[in-house]
Design a protein around this nucleic acid. Structure first.
Ligand SMILES: [Zn+2]
Ligand SMILES: [Zn+2]
Ligand SMILES: [Zn+2]
Ligand SMILES: [Zn+2]
Lengths: 140, 140
DNA sequence: CGGGCGAACGTTATGATATAACAACAACGC
DNA sequence: GCGTTGTTGTTATATCATAACGTTCGCCCG
């Protein structure tokens, strides 16, 4: 029924989880929890916990990423959320567009940098703020 | 008088800014704005805007960094806050300790990764969560 | 000296983000 | 049927951050 509940490697989504995920996929960029709530009131979601619970599950299984620097959430741009341990996000401060970048070299550098100080990383949050290609000519 | 107002390249700090900065330097790790407020009530700071304004100025001039993933603030560990455009933070989820890492290779990789998608970065937020050296044996 | 002016301050109120807690309900194995 | 487990809907509350406004401070210049 929803675009996400089919034959993916992820566990099946509940109704609320699918609604939130579909909203994020339809959106061209990131959305905050309360933007999602506003968008989904018409479909029966009324209160923050319903949104945050769905987002928690979706981020746990890797279908959605949380952008710490903007308190927003974005659908994973790598299909089903499998296979990237170190993702970086390029966030355009002009238009809000978000691109998910993945790079093995970056992951390796981060790991070795952490190792150098005896740190064992479990997760990383890498967010670049700046201007995207489309917005650059305008404010050059 | 304060530890920061001397012959640095930064402008002199006001009384409130110095109080907040000193509190962060004294703290071994990061503090949230409201933790700072609680710590500085005895010295006359009463309301959130006083804290947030000082933090804004301190982060603008590079003496303090904001940790997006924990909504906390930490004094720059590179002396006076000059000369690092790409800092990464290793945050121990066990003890809260924060180490500021700086690496030219990481900065270069990030820049080339962004360039590859036409993105012009202005600032980066790189935060690693995990376990620090001292805490690792305990929960291995 | 004494305005004039811009930055910083103190205060009140409010906005934005996120979670605790609990009762009702559905799904499943037995 | 019946316990177990996880999801749901709901209310209330906690946590993080800023708007707005009048006052005071520091400092330059006439
Ligand atoms: Zn992804
Ligand atoms: Zn843009
Ligand atoms: Zn620093
Ligand atoms: Zn630790």
């Amino acid at each position: 029924m929803t675009s996400a509940a089919k034959g993916s490697p992820s566990p099946r989504l509940t109704r609320n989880q699918a609604m939130v995920y579909d909203a994020l996929v339809s959106a061209s960029g990131a959305m905050t929890a309360y933007q999602l709530l506003d968008a989904l009131r018409a479909e029966g979601l009324n209160a923050p916990p319903q949104i945050y619970r769905a987002l928690q599950r979706l981020t746990d299984i890797g279908l959605v990423h949380r952008l710490e620097s903007t308190h927003a959430f974005v659908a994973c741009q790598h299909g089903d959320g499998t296979g990237h341990d170190t993702a970086a996000f390029a966030i355009c401060d002009d238009c809000g567009d978000v691109v998910e970048l993945s790079d093995a070299r970056l992951a390796r550098d981060l790991r070795s940098l952490a190792d150098g100080s005896g740190f064992t990383p479990h997760r990383a949050s890498i967010e670049l703020h700046g201007t995207c290609e489309r917005c650059r000519p305008a404010n050059d």
